[in-house]
Amino acid sequence: MNPFLDPAEFSEEPTGPEYLLHLYITGATPNSTRAVRNIKDICEEHLKGRYELLIVDVYQQPELAQEMDLIGVPTLIKRRPGLVRRLVGDFSNRERVLKALGVAPPAGPL
């Protein structure tokens, strides 16, 4: 969380895409597939060309579950920019997702 702890990542920031997102899913469960679809839609719509999305299937790498302290699935971890945030769910609540990602919602009612 503290960017000073990882100077490499810090220095690297300007070069990589603005948004670094890790999405942890569990196989092809309805929640997971919905989550993948929703997050892709959101990113394409609001962060086009500014993001990097990594999708991890925890079933394939179960040790990651502990490492990443996963409880609810699907979980999206926003690594950049700003504070690390965790978003749990299938991202059907678009307003919340955008708020959590720090993306200003487009003008006008959603």
């Binding site: 409880i71 979980t75 749990v88």
Partner: peptide, 11 residues
């Protein structure tokens, strides 16, 4: 943790 929709505790 921000809840954004359906989820389970599969993690």
């Amino acid at each position: 943790i921000e809840e954004t929709g359906e989820y389970d505790l599969e993690g």
